[in-house]
């Protein structure tokens, strides 16, 4: 687990959302610790982990917030959407209901998250082929219609877990860089790399941890 000491170029806050039991905590455990646990306990409130990866020669530190899936917790968890630049919206390919609820999760994001947030739809438990209840092409079509990227993963056998996180972080990075391109010449891009996120941060509560960290980083970078 990262402690934040190491060097990085970007810090992106990403949230994991979706119904209870779809495998959010295990996706996080697989990505950050390469672990899987059939008896991982239900998440209470939010849990937190980080990992840094390299994208386009830049070190991106992902600060990932794993939220509790039960509807009851939504009042608490939605507070954590603030300042997030990415969301993995997870359902269980073997449970139709968790897919039906994707719409509701999208509207949660619309209500509480930044409008520029990058959303990736994730169909987890792809190892459960014999129990599949949600066809992949149906989810693909839904994702396209809603302008989301889409991937199927298995936290159990690791399929696509790395790719899913890499893809969303790359996409966030691309979006961030593109917005920088709009506003300045290439040379300065690296120095003020965090600027677009600062824009996000203005929509976030000042107490928000991610926003706070990003601002700090900016100061360091320009010093």
């Amino acid at each position: 687990m990262g402690t934040g000491d190491e060097e990085y170029d970007y810090l992106f806050k990403v949230v994991l959302i979706g119904d209870s039991g779809v495998g959010k905590s295990n996706l996080l455990a697989r990505f950050t610790r390469n672990e899987f646990n059939l008896e991982s306990k239900s998440t209470i409130g939010v849990e937190f982990a980080t990992r840094s990866i390299k994208v386009n020669k830049k070190i991106i530190k992902a600060q990932i917030w794993d939220t509790a899936g039960q509807e009851r917790y939504r009042a608490i968890t939605s507070a954590y959407y603030r300042g997030a630049v990415g969301a993995l919206l997870v359902y269980d390919i073997a449970k139709q209901l968790t897919y039906q609820n994707v719409e509701r999760w999208l509207s949660e994001l619309r209500d509480h998250a930044d409008q520029n947030i990058v959303i990736m739809l994730v169909g987890n438990k792809s190892d459960l082929r014999h129990l599949r209840a949600v066809p992949a092409d149906e989810a693909t079509a839904f994702a396209e219609a809603n302008n989301l990227s889409f991937i199927e993963t298995s936290a159990l056998d690791s399929t696509n877990v790395e790719t899913a996180f890499e893809n969303i972080l790359t996409e966030i990075h691309r979006k961030v860089s593109a917005r920088q391109m709009d506003s300045m010449d290439g040379d300065e891009i690296d120095k003020v790399c965090m600027k677009p996120i600062r824009i996000d941060a203005t929509t976030a509560n000042t107490n928000d941890s991610a926003a706070f960290q990003i601002k700090q980083f900016c100061c360091n970078a320009s010093a």
Binding site: M1, T3, G4, D5, F48, T50, S209, F212, Q213
Partner: peptide, 13 residues
């Protein structure tokens, strides 16, 4: 002794 957000939160959890 923890000097940053992530170290603190990971410890607290």
């Amino acid at each position: 002794e923890k000097k940053d957000f992530q170290g603190l939160l990971i410890m607290l959890q």
